[in-house]
Every structure is written in C-alpha cells, then in structure tokens.
Simulated assay, not measured.
Amino acid sequence: MKSLRLILSNPRYFAPAWAFASLNILFGTWAIYIPQVKGDLGIDKASLGLALFFLSLGNFTIFPLASKIINTIGVGKATWYGVLLISATAILPFLAPNYYVLLGGLFFYGAANGFLDISMNTLVTEIEKEDRQNFMSASHGFFSLGGVLAGLGSFMIIFLDNPVLHIVLAIILVLGVNAFFYKNYIHIVSPPLEKEPFKLKNFRPLLLIGIVSFLIMGSEGAIVDWSGIFLQEISNAPVALIGSGFLAFSVTMTLGRFLGDSISAKIGSVKIVGSGALVAIMGYFMVLTTNTYLAIIGFAFVGLGFSAIVPELFRIGGNIKGVKTSQGVAFIAGTGISGFLLGPVILGYLAEASSLKLSFMTLLACCIAVFLATFFLRKKR
C-alpha cells in the first residue's frame, strides 16, 4: 500500500496513474453498452465477436509503431496525445449507424487504446528509474479503479437512457482531470529502446508460462466483453444490474492489485498463481448457477483470482535461468495479448454455435487448466 500512498500524495505519480484509470473508464463504459449496441444493430453473437476482434486488432496493429512514435515525440507527450486519442475515438462505436461502420470505429478506438497503453507503461517505467520509486503495480490498480468508476456509471443508464450522452460525460471526466495533471509528465523523454530478439532455444522453458498467460488474459478479455450479455440473456438480470458483473469484477481486481505485492512476498509467485486460479474457479461455479446475484458475486471472485496472476507471470518469466528479463517479459506479454485478442472472439463463436453458458464453461475449464499447470511450475522452479 506504500505505492498507493505515494500516488495519492504526489501529483507527479498521480498524473500517470490517472492515465491508467482513464483508459478503463472509457473502455468500461463501452463494455457496459455492448448488449445495447448488439441489439440496436441487430447482429448475432458471432458477428459481435468479430467486431470485438476488430477492437483488439486495432490495439495489436499499433504495437510495431508505438515505440518509434514514443521515442520521437517523447513519452510524456505520447501519453497526453494517447489520452486525447482515446477521448476522440471512444465515441465512434456509439455513433455507428451500421455493422461495418462499427468495425471501423472499434478498430480506430482499439489503436488509440493500444497507443496509450504502451505510452503510459513506458512513462511509469521512466519515472520509476528517475525517482527510484516503484508504483507500477499500483498504477495498474488505478486501471482497475477506472473499471470500477465505469461500473458505477452503469447505474446512470436508468436516468440518462442515452448511450452517446453517457460516453460524452465519461470523456469530459477523463479529459478534465488529465488536463489538470498532464503538466506533471509531459516534459519526460525516454531514451531509445534496445531491442533484444527472442531466441528459439528459450521457447521451451517459457512455453508453459506462456500458455497460462494466454488462458488468463483470454479469460479476462472475455469477462470484460461478455459479462453484461451473460447477465442479460442467461441470468435474465434487470437492466439496472446488467453492468454489475463488470463492476464486481473490477472492484475485486482493483483490491487484489493493490494488495498483491505484499501477498506475493509472503507466499511466492507460483503459489499466488495457483491460489488465484482456485479463487477464479469458485467464482465461475457461482456464475454458472445463472442466478443473477450469485453470478455477480461469482464475477467478483473471478476478478479477485485474476488480479495478481498476470503480474506474477511477468515476475516468473523475467527470472527464468538463462533467459534475459526483457526476453521473458516480452514473451509473456505477446502470449497474453494474443489471448486477450482471441478470447472474446472464440467465446462469441462458441455462444453462437451452442450457448453462452457453454462459453463460460470453457472459461472454467481454462482456469482449471491453469491451476493444474501450477503443479508443473513448482517442479520447474
């Protein structure tokens, strides 16, 4: 909790942390309205899955270009421009008059998300190096906090009954706070990044960890995109509670990320991955009861279980004997991004071919696989 106190007491650290929150405030607001957008455009689950793929595709496409742009204009300016880009593009999916315009809007919004994601993580890394202060984990906690704020905003649906007005209000909140604090980081410039190509011989020891990263990030992306539709169509939740699954997931994800470092120090990385998977398994069983309130509690358990797993995978991957830290982390990031990109799409096609309940049973199976994998990770360690 030391890093959280640091962020809340010093605008130099709060400013980049709020950029993390901003990303998820806008993305979370979009996630809340996915069921309504699906209904308004009259598209099926498979088509929705493809649309969500375009959002992830935009995110993935910007990766090769982002580092060069950041090094050219400076990481501080890149982060501020990233905030402006997500604010400009977040409204596009809400204005789409048809399915094809929705695909284009989601692609550009995804690209803006990816650019800010890389910029703000690079910014925090540079500040940590300059100040010798660690606040990366807490910054990711602020990302989850943004999801909490978006989830709380879901209760405005009853009063606003206007998705465009809702996202505009979210954009005003994001821009207003960032405009006040961005001067604390806009001057920061990062040195050129050194590229260390991944060697094929290092693939073997990282393979298992990469698979775990793929499954967890894929499940996380699926929860964000499909939890509202699950509550609406499977649990028959009232309109006011459709966003509650995402809210519960985000709240416990936030708490877990703020507390994860201290727990990890006590029980170790592999145990925290196993424990997190076990908690998520319990959560999925509650979700699959299809009872609205049990499902919401289940999403909370899944968020708590997932919260510390990905940071610990980076920690394990960066400490494998004979593998440079940057190479291990890069591999884990690549497999995780691939899972986040493909997870919601696969879930959409499964839901269309069979049922959304089967899709969530598949997510449960993924968590069980992760839990079993930790026994092999202990042997590798």
Rank of each mutant, 00 (worst) to 15 (best):
L145G: 11
Y33F: 15
L84T: 06
M156R: 05
F143P: 00
L57E: 02
F63K: 08
L55C: 08
G28P: 02
E126F: 10
G58R: 00
L41D: 00
N134R: 14
E130R: 15
R132K: 15
E126A: 13
G104V: 00
M156H: 03
L102C: 06
S47H: 13
V75K: 04
V83W: 04
G42K: 04
I157G: 05
N59H: 13
T125Q: 14
L52T: 08
Y81A: 13
S139I: 09
Y99T: 01
W80S: 15
I34D: 07
A111L: 13
L123T: 03
S67K: 11
G141E: 09
F108Y: 09
G39H: 11
L103F: 03
G141T: 05
V75I: 12
P35K: 01
S119Y: 09
F155G: 10
L85Y: 12
V75Q: 06
A90L: 06
T61K: 05
P97I: 03
S87M: 04
A150L: 10
S139G: 15
A31V: 13
V83T: 07
L55E: 07
L106F: 04
I69Y: 08
A66V: 05
P97F: 00
G146I: 07
T61M: 15
G74I: 09
E130T: 13
T29V: 15
L103I: 07
I70T: 12
D40P: 00
K45Y: 13
A31Q: 08
G42Y: 01
S137T: 13
F143G: 02
T122P: 06
I62D: 05
K38A: 00
S137P: 12
N113K: 04
T122N: 14
